[in-house]
């Protein structure tokens, strides 16, 4: 187990370096955008005098690298600064939205992961049957369609035509948990449809790969029923690739939901990021991107750890 701890620490160290590099890239990308924050805030109402006054007030007259290091100095002690536009703390602006995003991702994951793996096992069991083909075609269709299109189709059938679910998922503070699940069901379902195919097909492929192994043949020869062969003998050896794909898709559920948020009017972090980019509000852009990057780093790490833990050979190296 000591090795795993060492690996985790090493990977976390590399993760921090990655984050630092990403923060530099983001800062200078925002700097490269044409126009500046003062112009974005004043719009057509900008005159040279009030632009100058606003730039002074926002501290934009300092050189770019000075501003970057000022921000970095705060960030290393956990202070992500204030929004340049509104002057609000970045943490207050983002926290609630990030929790919303996490909630939606968790909601979708709780449905999608068990569903995809079960479906993957079933189609591996019934491979090359009609069921297998239909399941493949349906999931591949849903992954190939853009999220907003899936969202609109769900809205059309489940909201406009039948009225089963609300078309917009705007949240209220006084909603009960059941209400919340009902209001956010359509965006969650959209995300489920988007991520299921990938996980299901990986489960199917990983299992089918193993079915040619001698030990599976042995299991069959001793008369084990087919479902038991797959669930008890093949699946445990197939976990590593499946966990990898699950981690990738979980990361997508957090970072790739901008379109779904827009279509369903869900107050998540994606919309905040898009707004911040259009206003050049660098501290918010930085905070959002770092959250996204950290999500990827941590989930990848979790996948590697998971792959080790499910494989006795890696768990007990010679």
């Amino acid at each position: 187990m000591g090795d795993i701890l060492g690996l985790v620490l090493k990977r976390l160290g590399f993760g921090l370096i990655t984050l630092l590099i990403i923060s530099i890239i983001i800062f200078f990308m925002v700097e490269l955008l044409p126009g500046d924050i003062a112009e974005a805030v004043l719009g057509q109402g900008a005159t040279p005098e009030n632009l100058a006054a606003l730039r002074e007030e926002m501290g934009l007259n300092k050189p770019a690298f000075v501003r970057y290091f000022e921000w970095l100095g705060g960030a290393v002690v956990g202070d992500f600064g204030n929004s340049v536009v509104s002057g609000e703390r970045v943490s207050t602006l983002i926290t609630e939205r990030f929790i919303n995003t996490l909630f939606l991702a968790a909601y979708a994951a709780v449905i999608a992961v068990p569903f995809a793996i079960t479906l993957g096992v079933i189609v591996a069991l019934l491979r090359n049957t009609l069921f297998d083909r239909v399941a493949n075609v349906l999931t591949l269709t849903s992954i190939s369609s853009p999220e907003f299109f899936l969202g609109y189709i769900l809205i059309l059938y489940l909201s406009v035509k039948t009225g089963m679910f609300p078309a917009i998922s705007s949240l209220r503070a006084d909603m009960s948990f059941a209400d919340l699940l009902h209001r956010t069901f359509l965006p969650a379902l959209t995300l489920v449809l988007v991520v299921t195919a990938h996980m299901m097909r990986m489960t199917r492929a990983a299992i089918i790969n193993l079915l040619a192994s001698p030990y599976i043949e042995m299991a069959r020869l001793k008369g084990t029923p087919p479902w038991k062969v797959i669930v008890k003998h093949a699946l445990p050896n197939a976990w590593a690739p499946i966990i990898n794909v699950i981690a990738l898709n979980l990361a997508y559920l957090i970072t790739g939901v901008v379109l779904v948020e827009v279509v369903f009017v869900y107050p998540g972090i994606g919309q905040a990021l898009v707004d911040a980019v259009s206003k050049r509000d660098f501290p918010i852009v930085q905070a959002c991107c770092l959250i996204f990057a950290a999500t990827f780093i941590l989930l990848n790490l979790a996948a590697d750890v998971g792959a080790i833990l499910t494989n006795p050979r890696l768990r007990h190296p010679k």
């Binding site: 609109y152 078309a167 917009i168 827009v262 009017v265």
Partner: peptide, 19 residues
């Protein structure tokens, strides 16, 4: 007041009576 930037989402909300 509900902020809905997407024209499609806005109009759907009106059609379904959400707004």
């Amino acid at each position: 007041m509900i902020a809905i930037n997407d024209p499609n989402a806005r109009q759907t909300a009106l059609v379904t009576g959400d707004v």
